[in-house]
């Protein structure tokens, strides 16, 4: 899938947010954090949330889709296949500097839910929320100090930082009263199926593999 804008008809990558054809070529959009989770968990995180109305005229077209399931349809559509992972395998793609790292969701499931790591020399933390079955990355730089994070036991995802011991939720908010409203700095990251991520970033590394 690619996107066009109606003002210039330029063509944009929906994975990278960069225009690669047309007058806007070379322009990049910035990424914002997107929390991929269940309605129940999102509502618990943000009780004041609004939701898209279903009444768009296309209600009959909305069907549940299970992402990450094998179907074998896409490999033969690709110009080349990166067989390091199954094409439809769900990964968390992380971009930092010139580095691209894929964290297979299946591998994240085997961790505590928190991975402290350096990517391209930048200290980041990857959160994996078992309820959401999804991940997201943030910076470990807290006002100039580098923290390590640790998963706190409990069903809802919470992680404590090593500097103040404050607790942070999956959406990167500090939920310890004295620091309320502080948020971790987002590191560009999103869920993808492997074939899309690897087609755009053939030089990606895979977490847990040499």
């Amino acid at each position: 899938m690619v996107m066009t804008d109606r003002q210039t008809n330029s063509i944009w990558s929906h994975l990278d947010g960069e225009a690669f054809e047309g007058p806007m070529t070379g322009q990049e959009m910035g990424f914002l954090p997107l929390i991929h989770t269940t309605w129940e968990e999102w509502l618990a995180l943000h009780p004041e949330t609004s939701v898209l109305s279903y009444e768009t005229g296309f209600e009959a077209q909305y069907r549940s889709v299970t992402i990450g399931m094998p179907n074998g349809r896409f490999d033969r559509q690709l110009l080349s296949v990166d067989d390091r992972l199954r094409s439809e395998e769900l990964i968390l793609g992380v971009m930092e500097g010139d580095a691209f790292v894929a964290y297979p969701v299946a591998a994240l499931e085997q961790t505590s839910g928190v991975i402290n790591v350096d990517v391209d020399g930048v200290p980041i933390v990857v959160f994996y929320d078992a309820v959401a079955n999804a991940g997201i990355a943030y910076s470990r730089n807290l006002d100039g100090e580098i923290a390590n994070f640790e998963r706190v036991s409990g069903t809802s995802f919470l992680a404590a930082d090593s500097i103040s011991g404050a607790l942070w939720d999956f959406s990167g908010r500090n939920v310890t009263d004295e620091h309320a409203d502080a948020t971790l700095n987002f590191v560009t990251s999103y869920l993808s199926e492997w074939y899309g991520w690897s087609a755009y970033h053939p030089d990606t590394t895979i977490y847990g593999e040499p």
């Binding site: 899938m1 690619v2 990558s13 929906h14 947010g17 990424f31 559509q77 999103y190």
Partner: peptide
Amino acid sequence: ALKARIAARTMGVAAAVGVT
């Protein structure tokens, strides 16, 4: 992009999500 669009034409869905 050629690779990706070829795939996405039939798939319609990359689980890739981003808010931009």
